[in-house]
Design a protein around this nucleic acid. Structure first.
Lengths: 181, 181
DNA sequence: TATTGTTATACTCTATAACTATA
DNA sequence: TATAGTTATAGAGTATAACAATA
């Protein structure tokens, strides 16, 4: 019983040829949701968490990921901003990471109020294991893709994320300050 | 906008950390997360919910969306499957939708155990308002895109979602039944 | 005996409010 | 007085377990 989740958007089955070729916003939405689910609570992250740090929670791994992507220690507020969450949330995850010796806090020399969160070697190794699993899945899933399609997807996804974010920021600013526009 | 997730220059040891034209998995991950956040708890959905049905919760709207995309009444279990959630979760949202007269349950004539959930006219109007807002934002955000880029993005995103889902389903099946391969 | 759905309960993620300590 | 972070608490979203009705 397991019917296809995709009656709405006929595209693909992909293997053969003819994608329908149309641009249809209605078809885009379920795909975006699908990707969102995969990145937050699907078997991909479940699998990667299991490989990398059984028992650790997802947001804590997300903190480690932010540190990994930044390549340097970050303030609590900066991590919160990058994760698109609120300060206290980060505090709790950093507590957990510190308890597990995956990260530590040091006072920011430039501002005694602030704390810099930095990954420990074990923290770095943990997030590397996580990314190894995630990349492995993507890599195998995209095994059949042409180099050109990969580049195009990367470019278009980045542009899409940027353009949507920028437009929403514009709308939000308008809401806060109806004068402008 | 201030510092966007774009600072993420992967620290040196990433595979082929190339420039914009390259395909770099490490660059893909934050973009996918960003899109996921937008679709689940960003200002896009907040805005659309506010326009369409202030006070209604997001998963209930998601149920209405599934009915809209299917174009026909669906069983509780089928809705759960399409939403990638578990049965009891859907039951609660359908209760809420019924309370608000946005959907109703009818016994499935083919199986007295099952219930078919169908949208009321008000439910349909509600989800149309929601989609109108979402499509409006996307449409404006993508205003500058060429028709070709739109088609390419639609095609590649669909293929990506399908290929990742298929590969994960394969891995999950392997986990459950290590015999196979 | 297996399946569809519901009720009751608990867990995870995230937000808001009140507070502490620097600035 | 404003800012960085923390503590305490509350809410939204989702899962698991036990059950009822029908197959």
């Amino acid at each position: 019983m397991d019917s296809t989740p995709n009656d709405y958007a006929p595209p693909s089955r992909t293997e053969g040829a003819g994608d329908d070729g149309e641009f249809n916003l209605m078809a885009l939405v379920p795909r975006l949701s699908q990707v969102g689910t995969a990145m937050s609570r699907g078997s991909l992250v479940e699998r990667a968490m299991q490989q990398a740090a059984p028992g650790l929670d997802q947001p804590s791994m997300n903190v480690l990921m932010q540190l990994r992507m930044a390549g340097k220690p970050l303030r609590v507020g900066e991590i919160a901003h990058r994760m698109q969450v609120v300060g206290p949330h980060v505090t709790r995850q950093v507590n957990e990471l510190e308890r597990r010796r995956l990260a530590r806090r040091v006072v920011d020399p430039d501002d005694q109020r602030a704390r810099l969160v930095e990954s420990t070697p074990e923290g770095t190794a943990t997030v590397e294991r996580y990314l190894h699993t995630v990349f492995g899945v993507f890599d195998e899933a995209l095994a059949d893709w042409s180099a050109e399609d990969r580049r195009a997807f990367s470019r278009l996804l980045g542009r899409f994320a940027d353009d949507v974010a920028a437009h929403l920021a514009h709308l939000d600013a308008q809401d806060r300050d109806p004068q402008r526009d």
